[in-house]
Computed example of a mutant assay.
Amino acid sequence: MDSHSRPPKLMDRVKATMRVKRYSPRTEKTYCYWIRYFIRFHDVRHPAVMGGTEVRAFLEHLAVERRVAAATQNQALNAIVFLYRHILDQPLGDIGEFSRAKRPRRLPVVLSHEDIMRVLSHLAGPMHLMATLMYGSGLRLIETCRLRVRDIDFERQIVTVRAGKGDKDRTTLLPAISIPALQQSITVTNHRLDDRLQHGGVPVTLPHALERKYPNAGVSLAWQWLFPASRPCFDDTGKVVLHHIHPSAVQRAVRHAMRAASLTRPGSCHTLRHSFATQLLNQGTDIRTVQELLGHKSVETTQIYTHVLGKGFAGVRSPLG
């Protein structure tokens, strides 16, 4: 059989289908990991000759032997369900009972405003600005990394988060304190763009098929990353492009800042977002507004912060006051 007429490999089909359905690159990477793991666990048998029994055994292995978290086990299950439903066209149906990973209920780590200010004092430049936005706007780390010039509205003081978790757009607060640094960042971005245009014009990465619709978008100021990577890279087609900063670089900087601030409960980038939520609730902001600003699908997710504040008992007071 000629190589050009061979059917695409299973994992190539998985990737192609996820891109058609507009799954995020992170979800694509995660699903591919679990599908490969599932296949290797069953001695590289093709999933088409397996079914519910093999899936159940795999999930049991994750819970009992690997002792993964509940969210991790659910993630693996979602990846395998996607494989059977959308790639193999043979939905699994009921796979029967299997050991569920335990789901311990832990309250998120939150910091006081004073602690956050101490952390920020140990950051500088873009890292300081990104941490300020995670705390002042309630952004997730990846949402902060993906900000473009067009997402900042100085006049209305809002930040637009595009294709956030669940591929949904939302708007949130733009803290006034970050406006001068953002304006300076956009000025620097414009200068760097002019420099790139004079040396061949390396475009930024663009979402989905936007490049075909707007060929010049990649070299327009509006579409530039606010926090670009330090150097260009190759995209999936082999084209040289400029991507946003890698989240791991920001995570490292924030962790170092938290250690330098000598916190009793050091956290992570997500701690800044948690602290945004608790500060708003502490100020009396209604929980539905906080839900919208955070981009939570369910208000139940947002309610965890009321327990952090000790306000989850509908105003009931102790007999001792």
Rank of each mutant, 00 (worst) to 15 (best):
S5K: 12
S5V: 08
M11F: 08
D12T: 11
K15W: 03
A16P: 04
T17D: 06
T17P: 03
M18F: 11
Y23T: 06
K29Q: 13
T30W: 01
Y31D: 01
W34D: 11
I39D: 00
R40F: 09
R40Q: 12
F41L: 02
G52I: 14
T53W: 13
E54W: 07
R56G: 13
A57Y: 03
A63L: 11
R66L: 14
T72V: 09
Q73P: 04
A76G: 04
L77A: 15
L83M: 10
R85T: 05
H86K: 03
I87C: 01
P91A: 11
L92A: 10
G96A: 11
P104V: 08
R106S: 00
R106P: 10
L107F: 02
V110L: 03
S112N: 00
M117Y: 07
L123Q: 13
A124R: 10
G125I: 01
H128V: 02
H128A: 10
T132E: 13
Y135E: 02
L139S: 00
I142F: 08
C145G: 09
R148H: 03
V149A: 06
R150K: 14
E155R: 07
E155P: 01
R156H: 13
Q157R: 15
V159S: 10
T160C: 00
V161N: 03
R162A: 09
R162W: 11
R162M: 01
G164N: 06
K165W: 05
G166A: 07
G166Q: 04
G166E: 05
D167T: 02
D167W: 02
R170W: 08
L173S: 15
L174M: 00
A181V: 00
Q183M: 08
Q184A: 15
V188K: 07
T189A: 11
T189W: 06
R192V: 06
D194C: 01
D194E: 14
L197Q: 03
P203E: 06
L206D: 06
H208R: 15
L210Y: 05
L210W: 11
Y214D: 06
Y214H: 15
Y214V: 15
N216Q: 14
F227C: 04
P228C: 01
P232Y: 15
P232E: 05
T237M: 14
V240K: 04
H244D: 11
H246I: 14
S248Y: 04
V250A: 14
Q251C: 01
R255Y: 13
H256E: 08
A261V: 10
T264S: 06
S268T: 12
H270I: 09
H270K: 02
S275I: 08
F276M: 05
T278M: 08
T278A: 08
Q279G: 06
L281G: 01
L281V: 03
G284D: 04
E292W: 02
L294S: 14
G295H: 15
H296L: 02
E300W: 11
Q303T: 10
T306P: 00
V308A: 03
K311V: 00
G315K: 07
R317I: 09
P319Y: 12
L320I: 05
